[in-house]
Design a protein around this nucleic acid. Structure first.
Lengths: 197, 197
DNA sequence: ACCCTCCTAGATCGATCGCTCTAGTACCAG
DNA sequence: CTGGTACTAGAGCGATCGATCTAGGAGGGT
């Protein structure tokens, strides 16, 4: 049964997201996952680092699903952007400011100490960019402009999460959401108008 | 001599910034500070938590000095914003992506586990907002608009740091810098024009 | 019946964690 | 010289860290 393995990864992902890598103990993970201790090193011979990297990638994959989930039903790109930030703010409030970005904490923590973990985080960010990009290209934005907007979106979201979690307020998320909606709108207005020429 | 105390705080600040709270040991701090172990609990009877909170506040104060250092010599607000992000990117490259925001790592890490530490981080963010605000009000922006711009600036910077550190690239900082310069410019254009009325 | 592989189960390892404790040193006030 | 305060110095506390180890149960193939 690989059910245990999945529970371990899921529990790790949740603990990493809330308290980071160093503060999360292997024993704590097996307790949360209701898994036997020995299973950790059976499934993850690379130890905590391998398990952590896999949990990060899994978290990244799950979070990436939010993109279609929010963008598909939205009437247009601008309101999708707005909805994304609003949804993040609501979820943050609901979880008492515990669940923000699933990987940002770890990303900041380990990027000077563990290359495998840092790479896992970098891969997740890249995959988010790749996942968001087509939606902005599809509405007529140049590829490089679209990339800038997507990167700015993710950066604004991550930064707002940092402020929101620390101050226990969603103000930063609301401000960043409105701002990025405006930025998106402006980028759409500017497309296909070779104006100054 | 309180010189030892200062060295302890400075060493703590650097270690916290690079690897976070949980990964930083008290023994590691005294070694880095070249301080006797006993001094830690002499100066900081509250232990690691008290020391951590003080290091965060100190880091916040030092980083706040960058605001006048960058904004004062700049010819205008927009180029000041640009310079701030460019300077951050350069410093990040110079330190091999080690020194980004001095408190973001800790802020994400502890905000669900230690109230005193979380408060210290929140206070620092608030003080940064307060420190930046007057500069945007001085050029004629409404107070609430100015506040939104400043919060967005900090959020964009923090988020870009997360991406930059993980991907070992300053692309996010450059994108966010250009975007926030444009946002600032647009806010300035919109001021004092009761346009639609 | 048999073995073999997969996985569980947890005792146990040395190292390190944050912290407490005692002893000793430096310097000032009387 | 004496007493007191401020700080240094580090041995050592129990607890926990990540990781290794052996032993055994479950289930399929032969």
């Amino acid at each position: 049964m690989t059910d245990t393995r999945e529970r371990i990864v899921a529990a790790s992902a949740e603990l990493l997201r809330r308290q980071g890598y160093a503060a999360t103990g292997v024993k704590q993970i097996v307790t949360a996952a209701q898994a036997p201790f020995g299973s950790i090193y059976h499934f993850f011979p690379g130890g905590k680092e391998q398990l952590g990297a896999e949990a990060i990638r899994e978290s990244g994959k799950l979070y990436e699903l939010l993109i279609p989930a929010v963008f598909d039903p939205a009437p247009d790109l601008v309101s999708a952007v707005r909805a994304f930030f609003a949804g993040a703010a609501e979820h943050l409030r609901e979880t008492d400011y515990a669940d923000a970005c699933p990987i940002a904490t770890v990303a900041l923590e380990v990027s000077s100490t563990s290359e495998p973990m840092r790479e896992a985080c970098a891969d997740v960010f890249d995959s988010w960019i790749d996942a968001g990009l087509p939606r902005f290209i599809a509405v007529g934005l140049d590829e490089d402009i679209a990339r800038e907007v997507v990167i700015a979106l993710i950066a604004a979201l991550e930064g707002a999460f940092v402020l929101a979690r620390a101050t226990r307020s969603t103000e930063a998320l609301e401000v960043a959401g409105e701002l990025m909606a405006a930025v998106t709108e402006r980028a759409l207005d500017a497309r296909s108008t070779p104006a100054t020429r």
